[in-house]
Amino acid sequence: MKSKQPFVRRPFEQVVAIHGPTVLRVCRAVLGPVDADDAWSETFLSALKAYADLPPDANVEAWLVTIAHRKAIDVTRTAARRARPTAELTDASSVPAADSHIDRTPVDVTTALAQLPPKQRQAIAYHYLAGLPYADVARILGGTTDAARRAAADGIANLRTHPDVGLPKFAEKRECR
């Protein structure tokens, strides 16, 4: 009989099944829908290659988001080298409407996100969409935990300035009372 708890690493298929949706959301939030697919594919291919060396106690989601962060930067650079108009990122018409069963809110949020400075957009995606604590977000972005928290807070404050995002301004909340 084995005396120790057996060392368990899930089959990678389960990693894709469990974390694939979240990583795609993060890629979409950071890059927009056009480049998100490439970043997602590169992230999981890279993760598959490195998977056997992942420490057993690692936080798989934080690890994947870290890879996705680097891949998103690569994808952005490649896109810039191809001299693709950056307007494509912020152009609401490039959001595939067919995928979405939700009212007009999604388009508004994605557009507003695309207009944020990259660090704010990344901090929001990693904290709110991937659910990572700010300490992990800071490790991915570089800088302090406070700086990561501030970037996300500034980003959310920026989103609140857009009337259609669905995040009411603090001022309006006060008026409601």
């Binding site: 795609l24 959301r25 594919s41 929001i124």
Partner: peptide, 27 residues
């Protein structure tokens, strides 16, 4: 509840199972 950023953001990026299936095939 309308003022919950995580909720608003998650709604903005809904699950897309068919699309994920395609991405899985590519992978």
């Amino acid at each position: 509840t309308h003022d919950d950023p995580a909720r608003v953001l998650l709604r903005a990026f809904p699950d897309t199972p068919a699309h994920l299936h395609d991405l899985h095939d590519r992978l």
